[in-house]
């Protein structure tokens, strides 16, 4: 599974699939101060992208993949204090 949840950290490795949107929502709904790590991500299914845009969770790292990075920065860039700290 590309979505790996470890305590309050969810890491998306590789390509996030459509059915992971649900898992991600429940993680974000039930976890206190959730953090999402997009470092190892190379694709997000549109549904997962939507979840991130709705919840705007704190991001540990932005994707290395330049295309995804260019797309996500304007969308999620000013997301939260976590990312700003990391950046």
């Amino acid at each position: 599974m590309p979505l790996v949840i470890d305590g309050s950290l969810a890491r998306i490795e590789g390509a996030a699939r459509v059915d992971e949107a649900e898992t991600l929502v429940s993680f974000l709904e039930t976890t206190a101060d959730p953090v999402v790590d997009l470092g190892p991500t190379n694709h997000l299914h549109t549904a997962v992208l939507q979840v991130l845009m709705a919840y705007r969770p704190a991001l540990a790292t932005l994707p290395e993949d330049p295309v995804l990075l260019a797309l996500l920065r304007p969308l999620l860039g000013e997301a939260g204090p976590e990312l700003n700290r990391a950046a």
Partner: peptide
């Protein structure tokens, strides 16, 4: 109420 499977983009 958020439904991740209703596309709204």
């Amino acid at each position: 109420d958020f439904d991740p499977y209703q596309a709204a983009l």
